[in-house]
Nucleic acid binder design. Structure first.
Length: 295
DNA sequence: CGCCAGGTTAGAG
DNA sequence: CTCTAACATGGC
């Protein structure tokens, strides 16, 4: 069987802009970018595989298995993964039309035409990553994630390079939070990380059930975990299940972007952000994405 | 005594 | 309901 196959891409999709996002930190261990594409390791149906995504033609992505076998089941799972990763099923036309004249977003959607939310298909990884990023700069967050992944994740060697797979919640659930302190986790981050892992391991959070709930209820479920507040729940639901109306309202970066674009001296209040976002109803996640991009 | 960063919790008022 | 301290450390 062939080692590669194609996935077709919609109108208004820019692989390059999504690649820019994937390239944003040199400390990222969970995928590796080069000039043409991205390589990622994944645990899929009982086997660790390594695959590479590149653009092939105007409206297609090519997926090639670098290590592992490509069965028909795996092919369809990978195709689904890539669709979800790059959000290929969303039609951006209605959004672009509605913000054409918008003072905050009009210019941004023209400048970053085709940019899509690069998702995080794994809810567990989304939540842990959000906790690691709480209240610290992104660079340090990547340092913490790198140590966590190197210490508790799995490693795939290929062609002289290491590729990492995110730790499993079952393994992390058994850790005493104290074990994470040497990685320079704060006590809080350590406790929150183990809390999340336990919630998954003990079945309190079941992603496939959660994804069927309305946003408010899904958020409520996630926020029962100590360490997952409104910001984190929104962030994870936006990145993993792509609730179009989920967005981290309290996000400092979002506030800075609004301040910059509106020429404000101070960051907007929560009420102001809420009211500004009313006109983006149903596209809050994408409005947030483009504002983040402007930073 | 420098301030803010892709926040959250517990406790006080 | 709103306000505050504590959490740990890097980057500018």
């Amino acid at each position: 069987m062939s080692k590669s196959f194609s996935v077709s891409t919609p109108a208004l999709f820019s692989f390059e802009l999504c690649m820019d996002f994937l390239r944003r930190s040199p400390k990222e261990l969970l995928h590796r970018c080069d000039e043409d594409g991205v390589v990622k390791a994944l645990h899929l149906q009982g086997e660790d595989i390594l695959f590479r995504v590149t653009q092939s033609g105007k409206d297609q992505l090519s997926i090639r298995i670098v290590e592992g076998t490509l069965t028909p089941e795996r092919r369809s799972a990978l195709s689904e993964y890539v669709n979800q990763w790059f959000d290929l099923r969303t039609d951006l036309n209605p959004f672009y039309k509605s913000v054409k004249q918008d003072p905050l977003l009009g210019e941004l959607v023209r400048k970053y035409r085709g940019y899509r939310i690069v998702g995080q298909p794994d809810l567990y990884e989304s939540l842990v990553w959000a906790v690691l990023g709480q209240q610290i700069n992104l660079s340090f967050a990547y340092t913490l994630k790198g140590r966590f992944v190197e210490t508790y994740g799995r490693k795939l060697h290929h062609d002289g390079q290491d590729h990492y797979i995110f730790p499993s919640f079952g393994d992390v659930a058994q850790l005493d939070p104290l074990h994470l302190l040497p990685l320079q986790f704060s006590r809080q981050k350590a406790q929150y990380t183990v809390n999340i892992s336990k919630a998954f391991a003990e079945g309190q959070v079941q992603p496939h059930l959660l994804s069927k709930l309305p946003l408010a209820e899904a958020k409520e479920e996630l926020m029962r975990i100590k360490g997952v507040g409104n910001w984190t729940a929104n962030y994870a639901l936006m990145k993993t299940f792509r609730y179009p109306d989920a967005f981290p309202l309290e996000d400092a970066g979002l506030h800075n972007a609004i301040r910059n674009r509106m020429g404000l001296v101070q960051k907007p209040t929560l009420g102001r952000v809420k009211s500004l976002f009313k006109k983006y109803r149903g596209w809050e996640a994408y409005a947030t994405l483009y504002l983040w991009r402007s930073l």
